[in-house]
Design a protein around this nucleic acid. Structure first.
Length: 830
RNA sequence: GCCUGGGUGGCGGAACGGGUAGACGCAAGGGACUUAAAAUCCCUCGGGGUUCGCCCCGUGCCGGUUCGAGUCCGGCCCCAGGCACCA
């Protein structure tokens, strides 16, 4: 009686052996090619969920595969351990955030070990560890010294529920990304990272990322939002500081008939002073400043404005333009002032119609039959065309005209070429407790003073009371904030805000290379050996947030001389979500499948196999209990197949010959074995399409059962079978490593499968002696024939025409044409 | 509105240098084994017709190119995601 496949027992056994032999602990070795594969590290929320399992399984297959391909593989794991949920859990359970976090880490680490992932555990890090954020604080100080970290008072996103500010990237449809509360703008003094200094490079280098998904690149391009254009100066008719505008449509300057200012524009009230419109303007400005004009609300608002009583002068046309304050102009973009061209901008058109302002056509569509007349317009003509009524520039096309007009303005001192970005600086201070303290001390005499390196880390004190009152509890802890100024020794006050948790995740992948390094932020030798990450794997939800910040940090650390790379992640795989009943698994929906339960029921190999087989990795995956049962069934089939042959397989060595002397059946079988090797290799190499790779192995197993049934158990056959079994075990090892190891050992091997090379398809086994040719008549399949591989094209055509099933189609006369395609198909046209 | 993906059986998904549509798996139906059930094995499984040899239709819709189109081209429709008074 062969042994039954009992997954849990052998999985525990092999996990223990791998750990004892330290098979996955990577050593730097410049003589070997390296491969760094990384999955986005988890937040220690309490338990591993199925989305994690999918993410880490994909990464583990890549890691094990690349090891077998001969690479020196780095595959680390850690914890994104700071963040708000720890504080909320502390409030709900009266547990300190630190204890809650570390208990979760311990539990989840155990779960990951049960899943059998080949991690380099000695490099494990937790971002809430002072040994980690100490170096982050040092990066902050370096950035502060270079002006890349700065403090300013500005209208920022404020979430009242979380009682903290948020970065632009953390506001979705006007709602907080964590708690979905409406976010509003609040004027506050906050810390920023100057990511806008890198806007141009962050945009340009996207072109290097040829192995990133197109949609992620597009989302980042869009988020950075580069607009080339011109800055144009409009003098005031009555003198004083002129108004500057930014425009992408300098070609329409001769059509600018009025000016619109944002309600927050400093000139809005100043201009109206002393005019009959003053009180009306004041009411309008005060009203719109008080309105919530965050995203999502704006599109509902109708365009309104009010005349300031003042005029500015069109710098090329010379006429006076009334200055309005308008509710649709944003202070945050451009200069907060817009030159209004009603004929060629839809918003300005609607505004001009409403307030009866002049409309001047200055662009003609190139294909227009007759001259466009302002009176006939029912909507703005926003497309490019040819300039009319535009002085010396009349007759130019829009694109060259933009250039020429900006050049002209620059010469006259009335403007210049200019580029604007949508990207804002990254607001990184948070009024929260569970985060890395910002290492700055305020002194009345010295101003903002960075904490001296010798005093790092600024350790987050643990003896605080979490009240949930809002504001950081550190602000109430005198022992924390009362410190002498490092500059003058006078009384100082420590910064009590902490850093956005996205700061930690912006450089953790660099720290893994030298996680134990005590003498600096990064160990140059090791970080330059391992980086960049060759394959990064994680959810699409970080397409902008984390992936943009991490790219920014890499460039900053490069400019600090700490790394030599421009981009951190060479290849990116954004894996899809795990769904159940069509929805993302969530406690609130009651559709959660617990990985721990699946492992108990079926084992980790089955769980891994199902997740890899059910869908290609980049697509969403619908959970199916029956699908899991099917994966389990396959592993049993494989197990039983090998065990049914085992006594005979143990007596022979794997077949080494070139096929000479094998029966036709064995030749065909061996052909399929090597075709499967090629197919699995190609599927993993080209696209990580494990689903089709697994399908190919399933086909081979099916064929194996048939062949084994019909073959005598003689030594030559068993040699071919042993070759097939060994190839199969090597092929499935990255996906179901425990089962593969166990069967490998059962064959009598002493070496771990993890240290063996990936199999190679033998060229002589890939060629076939016969080919199958499909015969079509008028493009429809009517028959097929088997021909010797050596047959000529003419012979194949001849056999096709003589095929008995084809005769009835040829009754109405000879074929008009016979096409042979790739020696696979004959199409007879009648 | 703009941008990026994507529409293939009952379901997950295969097949893209144009060349046998539906691999592999799940579900379903029938059968074998069993006192019975589970497990396992065998057969059927896009729709319609059939003299059981086959024949017709079929990859979101409408056209086109081609000996041949799920795949290429033109025009639409729908779904998902991202951005959005960005001047």
């Amino acid at each position: 009686m062969p042994p039954r496949y009992q997954p849990r027992r052998l999985e525990e056994k092999w996990q223990r052996i791998w750990e004892e032999r330290r098979l996955f602990n990577a050593q730097e070795n410049p003589s070997r090619p390296k491969y760094y594969v990384l999955e986005m590290f988890p937040y220690p929320s309490g338990r591993i969920h199925m989305g994690h399992v999918r993410n880490y399984t994909i990464g583990d297959v890549v890691a094990r595969y690349q090891r077998m391909r001969g690479f020196n593989v780095l595959h680390p794991m850690g914890w994104d351990a700071f963040g708000l949920p720890a504080e909320n859990a502390a409030l709900a359970r009266g547990m300190h955030p630190a204890r809650w976090t570390y208990e979760n880490i311990d539990y989840m680490r155990g779960q990951l070990k049960n899943l059998g992932y080949s991690y380099d555990w000695p490099r494990e890090l937790a971002t809430c560890d002072p040994q980690y954020y100490r170096w982050e604080q040092q990066v902050f100080i370096e950035m502060f010294r270079r002006g890349l970290a700065y403090k300013k008072k500005a209208p920022v996103n404020w979430c009242p529920r979380c009682a903290t500010v948020l970065a632009n990237e953390q506001v979705e449809d006007g709602l907080c990304w964590r708690c979905d509360s409406p976010v509003h703008l609040k004027e506050l003094d906050q810390w920023f990272f100057k990511i806008t200094d890198y806007a141009e490079e962050l945009l340009r280098d996207l072109d290097q990322l040829t192995h990133w998904p197109e949609r992620v690149l597009t989302m980042q391009r869009h988020w950075i939002g580069k607009s080339p254009g011109a800055e144009i100066v409009f003098p005031l008719a009555h003198g004083g500081d002129p108004i500057k505008v930014f425009t992408t449509r300098a070609d329409t300057l001769f059509g600018a008939t009025f000016m619109s200012l944002a309600p927050e524009h400093p000139l809005a009230l100043a201009l109206a002073q002393g005019t009959p419109q003053e009180s009306e303007v004041r009411r309008f400005v005060e009203y719109w400043q008080a309105q919530n004009r965050s995203r999502g609300v704006l599109e509902e608002i109708t365009k309104e404005g009010v005349f300031t009583g003042r005029y500015c002068v069109n710098p090329v046309a010379g006429w006076q333009m009334p200055i309005y304050v308008a509710n649709f102009v944003l202070m945050e973009y451009g200069t907060g002032a817009v030159m209004a061209v009603p004929a060629h901008d839809q918003r300005d058109f609607e505004f001009a119609k409403k307030y009866e302002l002049p409309i001047k056509v200055v662009i003609q569509p190139p294909d227009a039959a007759a001259a466009l007349r302002a009176e006939d317009l029912t909507a703005a003509l926003e497309e490019d065309g040819v300039l009319v009524n535009s002085g010396d520039f009349t007759g130019l096309a829009s694109a060259p005209a933009r250039q020429a007009i900006a050049d002209f303005l620059a010469r006259e001192g009335k403007g210049r070429h200019s580029v604007h970005f949508r990207l804002r600086d990254w607001l990184i201070s948070r009024q929260r407790y569970w985060g890395a303290p910002i290492p700055i001390i305020y002194c009345e005499r010295c101003g903002l003073v960075p904490v001296p390196e010798a005093d790092l880390p600024v350790v987050l004190p643990l003896d605080v009371e979490i009240t949930g009152e809002g504001g950081s509890p550190l602000a109430h802890l005198a022992s924390f904030y009362q410190v002498p100024c490092p500059g003058c020794g006078g009384p100082g006050r420590r910064e009590v805000d902490t850093m956005d948790t996205f700061v930690e995740s912006s450089w953790y992948f660099l720290r893994y290379a030298s996680a134990d390094y005590r003498d600096g932020i990064l160990d140059p030798d090791r970080v330059n050996y391992w980086l960049p990450v060759d394959q990064y794997i994680g959810g699409i939800e970080h397409a902008v947030l984390h992936l943009l910040y991490a790219r920014f940090f890499t460039k900053v650390l490069r400019d600090l001389g700490l790394v030599q790379i421009d981009e951190p992640f060479t290849r990116l795989l954004t894996q899809g979500m795990v769904l159940k009943d069509g929805a993302k698994m969530a406690k609130s929906k009651g559709n959660v499948v617990d990985p721990e339960y699946m492992i108990e029921q079926y084992g980790t190999d089955t769980t891994r196999l199902f997740l890899l087989f059910a869908a290609p990795p980049e697509k969403d995956l619908e959970w199916s209990d029956q699908g899991v049962a099917g994966a389990s069934r396959f592993l049993h089939r494989l197990w039983n197949l090998v065990h049914s042959l085992l006594p005979d397989l143990q007596k022979v060595a794997a077949y080494q010959g070139d096929g000479a002397g094998l029966s036709a059946g064995l030749l065909e079988f061996r052909h399929q074995v090597h075709r499967t090797i090629k197919k699995v290799t190609d599927d993993i190499e080209d696209s990580f399409h494990f689903n089709t790779a697994i399908a190919a192995v399933m086909e081979l197993v099916n064929a194996f059962y048939l062949t084994a049934e019909n073959s005598p158990r003689e030594p030559l056959t068993m040699q071919v079978f042993r070759e097939a079994v060994e190839a199969m075990l090597l092929l499935v090892n990255p996906m179901v490593p425990h089962l593969a190891e166990e069967l490998w050992q059962a064959l009598g091997h002493a070496t771990s499968l993890q240290q063996l090379p990936w199999p190679q398809a033998r060229a002589e086994a890939l060629v076939k002696s016969t080919i199958t040719v499909v015969i079509q008549v008028n493009g429809k399949v009517r028959s097929k024939l088997t021909a010797p591989a050596a047959a000529t094209d003419e012979e194949i055509k001849g056999w096709a025409l003589n095929d008995p099933a084809i005769q009835k189609w040829l009754q109405d006369g000879p074929p008009k044409r016979v096409v042979l395609a790739r020696r696979k198909l004959v199409n007879i046209v009648v």
